[in-house]
Structures are given as C-alpha cells and as structure tokens.
Design a binder for these strands. Structure first.
Lengths: 173, 173
DNA sequence: GATGAAAGATAACAATTGATAAGAAATACC
DNA sequence: GGTATTTCTTATCAATTGTTATCTTTCATC
C-alpha cells in the first residue's frame, strides 16, 4: 500500500499550487505536512547568495520540515514547488494529534523518520566518497528520472556545485 | 539524567577494549549496541584506499550501526576505538526485546534516531555549504575538544579531505 | 634510552572547481 | 508569434585540492 492510499482515510484537503510557489519559508515554523498527489518539489536552504537543494520530492511522498514540525522551531529549510502541484495538507495540530493517538500513524511516522535518516546518511556518504563529476554520474544511473524532470540548475544545487560547473561536467563525456 | 544513568538500570556488562580495536567490521551484521563509559571511538566506511570517518563518539553516547541493528543487514560502517575504551554492551536480542517491551527504552531509542537524523542533516548541510577550509574553522570553533583529542588524520578523514590538505590548511592561518 | 612505526609538515605538479562574463537556447507570457 | 526572462553553454583566470614524494616529529615498545 502506497502512502497516498494510507493517508486517504484521513480525508485531507487537497490544494493546488502553481509552479515555483514557496509553501514553507525558511525562518517560519512549519504549520503543515504535505503529501504529494501530483507534481514535484524541492527542499532547500539559503547560503549567502546561492541556495542549496537537499532533497527532491515526487508523487507519493510526504514533505515537511520534520525538525520544525516536531520541535516547533523555525525551519532552516524552504519548501518550494518546482512544477504545478496538487498536495494533500495536514495541519500540525492534526499531525501531533494523530501522532499521539493513532498507532498506525505513529508507526508510519517512525518509519518516515528512519527512512529520512538512512537517506541522509547515504547522501552524506556520497558527498564524502565522491567528487562532483562522480556524483553526477551516480545520479544519472540511479535516478535518471530526476535528471529528466528537474531543471539543471536545481540539480547543480543538489550536487553541491555551481550550474556552470555542472554544465562543464555534462559536456565532458 | 545522562545516558549512562539511564542505562545503569539495565545491568549491562562492561568491557574494556584497547585502542584501535575494531568492534564492528564493515560487512558484518551488528550484534551489539555499545554505550561509551570511557574513551572515544569513530565510525567509518571504506572507500577504495582511504577510509571516511562519519562520526566520533565520546563518553555518554551510544554507538551502533543502527541500520544494521534494526534491519539485520550487513553494516556499511566499521566501528573502531581510537583510545582505550570502557564500554557497556547490550546484545541485539536484548536491544530488540527492550525496544518492543520497554516503553522508556523505546522513547529513548526514538530520540536517538531523531537526534542522529538531525545530526546527519546538519553535517550534510555543512558539506554543501562550506569548503574544507571553512569546515575546519567551523569545527575548530564548535568542537575544539575534538581537535585536541582526535589524531589529525582522522579529522581529515572526517572533513572529507586528505591529511596533506588538512596540514596545509592548518599552516595557512 | 634506542629503535621502528605512525603521524604530520612541506614542496611540486596536475586536475578540478569557483567566479565572472558574454552569448546562445529554451521557456513563459502577453 | 514576438518579446522578455530564465536557463544553459562556453571561455578565461584564480584558487583549492589531490597526488606523490621526501623529511621531520612524535609515539609505542622493547
């Protein structure tokens, strides 16, 4: 059973967002957790002039600043739609309520946190292990769908390099 | 209450290890979770010739390959003592038993996972945000105790650079 | 204290990336 | 369809890091 089936029983409101809409601004507290029905988004954080993309989200995934949502702190991250999106929305209040009262929701949430943790570990390791060129090749093989769907300068931001450098790498083959 | 107080009630066996002892080898399944009473350790993974240190552990912290322990998979990581260590040991069997039956243990574990998740997020962000030189300066300010206690080539391995490069960076001031 | 091994410093060269700029290509919008 | 904006490419130069090698210093062990 996919995530969207799972959350179907929660009767969440579905909202449409235009492309390039910021749904959580860095510095604000997360008020919602979203579930992606259609479209894709990115989570990024500001670094002086350039932004750094930490993760892409596609259909069937949950997206929220978990740290902000759980700790009620200002988010370090901005969440922004890349394409026009259709999202299911759950308020923080409901989120916390379900977390405490709904055993299957709690189990699901623990799973999400664990999954994210493993994802970040692997992502970090990939940074430690490989150079930008190799990271690009790795991404090309493991997630070609990301490269096809996501504009190149976001990919560069995700790989931790400049768009110029990524363009150079691509032309190197 | 610190971690060592918390786990005191579990009557764990205390074992001493010499410096540079490998207590979990990459490729093996984690059979234990350890709690550091005295000494320090590092978690690292192999990358061709050089190893990459992902985290240091000091007195009062728990150390295990959580992914291996929870999923019963071969560990990607090696755990090795840096100094001579005195560790409390809990078997995987007991770990899983307490996780299922002991509510306060489960809460503690969830906290550890969340904490590690946030740690990895921040560590990753620091990699994306800064260059080796800046990462070194950041470490110097935030965790001077690490620099004082840990041999320099492990620091280099942790910063994602070669020992030569770190030595150069240090002489740059 | 002597000896050998491990760790750190320094130097030279190659390779990669960042910064900046300018132009081409693609896309959005009226 | 035309215009403007955004995205991507290419080029040049400076700065940083990796690699390799050699030398010095520190540390462990007998």
């Amino acid at each position: 059973m996919g995530l969207l089936d799972f959350i179907a029983s929660y009767n969440l409101q579905e909202i449409s967002f235009a492309a390039k809409t910021i749904i959580l601004q860095e510095g604000n507290k997360a008020k919602y957790i979203y579930f992606v029905k259609k479209g894709c988004l990115r989570m990024w954080l500001n670094n002086r002039d350039t932004d750094i993309t930490t993760q892409f989200f596609f259909e069937g995934s949950a997206i929220a600043s978990l740290e902000s949502l759980l700790k009620d702190e200002a988010s370090d991250y901005t969440i922004e739609t890349i394409e026009a999106c259709s999202l299911f929305v759950m308020s923080r209040q409901d989120f916390l309520f379900f977390k405490e009262t709904d055993e299957s929701f709690k189990i699901w949430l623990d799973g999400i946190i664990l999954e994210r943790f493993f994802y970040y570990s692997k992502h970090l390791v990939s940074y430690l292990r490989t150079k930008p060129y190799e990271r690009y090749i790795e991404l090309l093989h493991k997630h070609p769908e990301i490269l096809q769907r996501i504009p190149q300068h976001y990919i560069a931001s995700y790989l931790g390099i400049t768009p110029v450098s990524l363009s150079r790498i691509r032309s190197r083959k």
